[in-house]
Structures are given as structure tokens and as C-alpha cells.
């Protein structure tokens, strides 16, 4: 499913004395099957933007189009409910949304709300639990017995069980240790590989480099850049202005290239990097 924003504006508290325009004339097109990073400072409008994708927020003006769904100010909210199944939104620290007595019940909560039968939902729960790296023995346990990282996996299984075509993630690795973060990102990469679209808000450029193909930069409610990851990381000065650090790998390559090396700037994994350095030194 592709996502299109046309001249979208959003104002919080319209017609009150504390009105605040969070989105100003946003125009975007996210391709189906891409893994796009959404970066920018707190207050740049990222969280407002992502809430438009599953119609939690409706544009104050402009239009959001997600496959057959058109979201405009005049649209009735009821008609937009099915969109919440297609575009699964995972908020920061999703472990806080768990509430059912058993993990199985919690994972099936989402699908059941969308009319999926009990049988089918349970089947999905089993599948998604395995996908997030937990085995079937967890189904009957209470979600509250688990550690923070495990709870988060259960929460994500709950969204995957709704079978969304688009996955929107708000800092999914916040607070996780390095292994936990890696497992989570690999999971999303697999999800993308099955033909789905992923949008991920992130502050970690190392993750962006490794997992994403496109990146959107937001600043003060506007989309300033939307390009391929390797193109963004060529713009050192621009990123410095926004106080965004380059990924460690890209920075390292830059430093070497400044001193006579000719390493491909777009490299995003260790193997390729070592190969090229080795290549240059053995010549």
C-alpha cells in the first residue's frame, strides 16, 4: 500500500487561544514496499504525521490517500475504521497497552475488534508470537509476568496479528538493549521483505543506515527532505545544522575518503566496508 499526503495541514486546538499548527503543507508519497525512516527533532511534527496514516488524526486541510482510502476533514470517522487494520500503528513503549489476562487474549484483541473469528484470531496469535521470537508456551501466561522486552514483543505481535499492509513504528527500539533492538529491527525487515510497507520514526542513524532505504526529514512541521538514505547522508552540513549525527560507519568512511581513500559512501554493512578497505590497501 502506498501512502500519499497532499497539502496536509494540521492544527491542534483549532479555534482555541492555544491553537498550534503542527503540520504545514505536507506533500509526500511513500512507495509500497519501502522501509522509510522518519527523522527530525521532537516537535518537528513526526508523531502528528504518523497519526494521520491510520486516521487517528484527520487533516485540518488537505488529503491523505492510502490505497482506496481518502482521508479529508469532511470524511465520517466510521468509514475510516477499517483503515486501522490496514495501517498498524505501534506507539512508543507499546508494552504499556497490554491489559488482557492472557497473552493469547491480548494478541487476539486487535483482530477480534475487526471482526476476525475467534478461531482464526487464535491461529494468527500463535503465528505472530513465533514471529516475534516467543514460543507457544507463552500463550496462556499473563503478559504481566514478562520482562519489558518480552512485553514489547507481545505488543508488536498484537499489531502483526491484525495483518496490516503498512506498519508504522514510533521509536520501536527505545529502551531496549542492543540485542533486543537488533531482534526487533530484523523482525521489521522481514515484514518489509514480505512485500509490506514500513515507516519508522527513529533517532538512531546507525539503524536508519542499516535497515532503511528511504528517509523523510521533518523540521518545524514541514517535510524538508525525502530521499534515499545514502543521499541524505551525503549532506553533512545540512545534518549538522539539524544536530543530527552521521552513522558511525558513514562518518568513518568520510574520514578515510578525506585522506585519499575511495570508499563507496553508501556502504551500510561491515562486510562490504572491510572488503573495500582491504581492496584499497592491497592494490
Amino acid at each position: 500500500m502506498s501512502i500519499t499526503f497532499e497539502n496536509v495541514e494540521y492544527i491542534y486546538g483549532e479555534e482555541t487561544p492555544i491553537a498550534y499548527q503542527a503540520l504545514k503543507g505536507v506533500n509526500l508519497h511513500v512507495e509500497k514496499g519501502s522501509f522509510t525512516a522518519l527523522i527530525g527533532h521532537t516537535g518537528s511534527g513526526k508523531s502528528t504525521l504518523i497519526q494521520h496514516i491510520n486516521a487517528l488524526l484527520i487533516p485540518s486541510s488537505g488529503k491523505v490517500t492510502i490505497e482506496d482510502f481518502e482521508i479529508t476533514r469532511t470524511k465520517k470517522p466510521q468509514l475510516l475504521k477499517p483503515l486501522r487494520k490496514k495501517a498498524g500503528l505501534v506507539f512508543q513503549f507499546p508494552e504499556y497497552q497490554l491489559f488482557e489476562e492472557t497473552i493469547e487474549k491480548d494478541i487476539t484483541f486487535g483482530p477480534r475488534n475487526f471482526g476476525v473469528s475467534e478461531e482464526e484470531a487464535k491461529q494468527k496469535a500463535r503465528e505472530c508470537l513465533l514471529r516475534v521470537g516467543l514460543d507457544e508456551s507463552y500463550l496462556e501466561r499473563s503478559p504481566f509476568e514478562l520482562s519489558g522486552g518480552q512485553k514489547r514483543r507481545v505488543a508488536i505481535a498484537g499489531i502483526l496479528a491484525m495483518d496490516p499492509d503498512i506498519l508504522v513504528l514510533d521509536e520501536p527500539t527505545a529502551g531496549l538493549d542492543p540485542q533486543g533492538a537488533k531482534d526487533m529491527l530484523d523482525l521489521f525487515k522481514d515484514f518489509q521483505k514480505s512485500g509490506k510497507t514500513v515507516i519508522m520514526v527513529s533517532h538512531d542513524m546507525n539503524h536508519v543506515l542499516k535497515y532503511c532505504d528511504h528517509v523523510i526529514v521533518m523540521n518545524k512541521g514541514q517535510v524538508e527532505k525525502h530521499c534515499r538514505v545514502e543521499d541524505l547522508f551525503k549532506e553533512r552540513d545540512y545534518l549538522q545544522q539539524l544536530s543530527i549525527d552521521l552513522p558511525l560507519m558513514t562518518d568513518f568512511i568520510d574520514k578515510l575518503n578525506k585522506n585519499g581513500f575511495h570508499i563507496d559512501h553508501a556502504i551500510n554493512n561491515m562486510d562490504d566496508l572491510i572488503k573495500e578497505i582491504g581492496g584499497e590497501l592491497h592494490e
Partner: peptide, 25 residues
């Protein structure tokens, strides 16, 4: 891979070492 650098925690040091090797070629 047989490249003679020291194992180091310091990125700057590593960059310097590699540049020295490169210029020697």
C-alpha cells in the same frame, strides 16, 4: 584479513593508522 592495525577503541586512531598504511603504498 592480515591488515596490520592495532585493535583499538579509538576511531580517530584507527583512521590515522589506515591513512598511514594507505600513503605508504
Amino acid at each position: 584479513r592480515g591488515i596490520p592495525v592495532e585493535k583499538t577503541l579509538d576511531t580517530e586512531k584507527l583512521v590515522k593508522a589506515l591513512c598511514q598504511l594507505h600513503s605508504k603504498m
